[in-house]
């Protein structure tokens, strides 16, 4: 199938892109295009204009300081995987990205695109929520920061206003011994997960002080599980209890890959794997 007709605008800089975006409600930002183009090629979306932000060089930068890693929206997954500093400061990103699709898609797919698209089955939004990354948006009124926990509003719904563009994502690093976990269950390598988990544990003298869990592929957005985290601080891992608690935390939603029961089950299994790995 061929895409419906649209016009194309190559933004010179951020202000230029925002300017076009705010005048046209049907304009869509073209980042890496790895999710957008399939929807166009299947005629599932019909934008008036694609605003290509691919030539805005400031969006392609990776900045690292002592406490943060700032990923420009247009950094490709491959670029991040090949960045030495990212691999040193936040090695789990490499592990996560190696499960995102396949090499040719990772060469073109962008960090900002994945965060902004907000696919509930995608890995990166869940990771952003886990570490409560700061999502930096630029609009006609300037820049604002939304915490990842506040960013995802529903199925493919985010806090981005129609005149705004996601410009970068800021991840905290050096988090006082916080240990990170990532795992997912897919039927084939690189597919969207039937269920996936990013989690973290902070320990003091081998006692768990803080546990965070964010699931993907389970509901309409990255799913936090506060009740389960609380349970795990007080109790040993127990499959049935965790599955029940998770069901209280998350409204598991079936999709083409698996049923809600399956997702709840796999989520409980993943929590078990995490507690085993990080404890």
């Amino acid at each position: 199938m061929k895409s419906p007709a649209f016009s194309y605008y190559q933004a010179k800089d951020l202000a230029d892109a925002i300017n076009v975006k705010k005048t046209d409600d049907d304009a869509v930002i073209l980042a890496g295009g790895q999710s957008l183009l399939p929807t166009l090629n299947m005629r599932l979306s019909n934008p008036s204009v694609l605003i290509d932000i691919g030539n805005i060089s400031e969006l392609k930068e990776i900045k690292v300081d002592d406490s943060n890693l700032i990923m420009g929206a247009m950094c490709s997954h491959s670029q991040i995987m090949n960045n030495k500093e990212v691999n040193e400061k936040l090695p789990i990103l490499n592990k996560i990205l190696s499960q995102v699709a396949h090499p040719a898609v990772r060469n073109k797919g962008t960090h900002g695109g994945s965060i902004a698209y907000g696919d509930p089955a995608a890995e990166l939004p869940a990771f952003a929520v886990l570490v409560n990354a700061e999502i930096i948006l630029s609009g006609s009124d300037g820049e604002r920061i939304v915490s990842a926990k506040e960013f995802y509003k529903g199925l493919f719904e985010t806090a981005i206003n129609s005149d705004e563009i996601l410009t970068s994502v800021k991840y905290p690093i050096n988090r006082n011994g916080m240990k990170l976990f990532f795992d997912e269950v897919t039927r084939r390598h690189g597919d969207y997960a039937m269920a996936g988990l990013v989690g973290s544990i902070k320990q003091n003298n081998k006692i768990n002080e803080e546990i965070n869990l964010v699931f993907f592929g389970t509901g309409d957005r990255p799913n936090e599980a506060p009740k389960t985290c609380e349970y795990l601080l007080k109790n040993e891992y127990n499959y049935s209890d965790i599955k029940n608690t998770l069901k209280n935390d998350i409204d598991f939603a079936s999709d083409i890959s698996s049923s809600s029961d399956m997702k709840a089950h796999l989520s409980a299994i993943l929590v078990g794997r995490m507690m085993k790995e990080l404890n």
Partner: peptide, 26 residues
């Protein structure tokens, strides 16, 4: 033409990409 099969991969500036998931103008 949905980026799944990989048959259309080409190199763009030396990196493989799905040519169905990139506009000619890009």
């Amino acid at each position: 033409e949905q980026g799944a099969c990989g048959a259309c991969n080409v190199l763009v500036d030396g990196e493989s990409v799905r040519s169905c998931l990139m506009l000619a103008v890009q």
